[in-house]
Design a protein around this nucleic acid. Sequence first.
DNA 1: GGCAAACTTGCCTGCTGGGCAAGTTTTGTA
DNA 2: TACAAAACTTGCCCAGCAGGCAAGTTTGCC
Lengths: 155, 155
Amino acid sequence: MGTDARELVHRLQDLLRGVRLIKQRRAEERPVIPLGLVGILSQLDGLADGCHARELALHARLDPSTVSRAVATLVAHGLVERRPDPTDRRAQVLALTPDGRTALTDAHDWYARLLDRALAGWTADEVTALGAGLRRFTRDLEVALENHENLEAAR
Amino acid sequence: MGTDARELVHRLQDLLRGVRLIKQRRAEERPVIPLGLVGILSQLDGLADGCHARELALHARLDPSTVSRAVATLVAHGLVERRPDPTDRRAQVLALTPDGRTALTDAHDWYARLLDRALAGWTADEVTALGAGLRRFTRDLEVALENHENLEAAR
DNA sequence: GGCAAACTTGCCTGCTGGGCAAGTTTTGTA
DNA sequence: TACAAAACTTGCCCAGCAGGCAAGTTTGCC
């Protein structure tokens, strides 16, 4: 299956180029949310009760200091708020502010509109299939990366 | 179709995280080819007769100065050679050296091995379908981005 | 009480791009 | 023939996105 994996490497290379171009386009809009922080906001979006910085860092696979700084930026922009966690005074509950929710919706709308245009000639089933394939691939990739770590450690 | 596009945004976010982790892993190997230059080398790989820097920049959607510097790095590493183009003395033909070809094969092998592990539970058809979906998506995305540019220009 | 967790911030680094400017040589066209 | 554009390079500088280490404080757990 090496040929297929190799082909997929090329497909990913192409995709990354496309993503780079997307980001350039988006940057021209001067968005409220710094491009690199949309992911963090997205993660918070799904959590009605907010979460701790530790969980953000774990999920995003980012260094805690990186997350701490990202959160500080988002708090400074009024997009995220820190609330005391009565069950663990060392930590704070991070949650989207209404402004943050608005900004995130705007960002997602922008990206979705662009993707809508890209997918204009696709059927709903085709789009769903691509999404499902990517979901599965990403999950399997993370498993492979975990195993890669374990293989390296065993060397 | 907004929901699907929005879902795809999330899928891409996840994928980018995976790619980031891949790159980290790869960086630990201290590869001969700087990570960011694999794409340039890959592009040269498909060209038996080499090409000009202009073509690299066009295809990679990178600024000419960026490409010029990338090429300079690759030449310094002995991975790319510059040959005079007798048909256009302003330009040079850039081509992979044997060392470059070896380094590129190593890089692709590394990535392909990782992807092989990720795809261990996939059928060949499933892999091919994902590759085809990505190819189509990337192409349609670039078209959408072009149109996005035209839309902005018309505003 | 001691140690670890949770977090923050300072300091610094590296990578991956971009942009502008300036310069030289070559090519194409009027 | 003259001129403008193409092709490219390099200096200078910038921005964004991460990482890492260290140090510090507070809190939680055993």
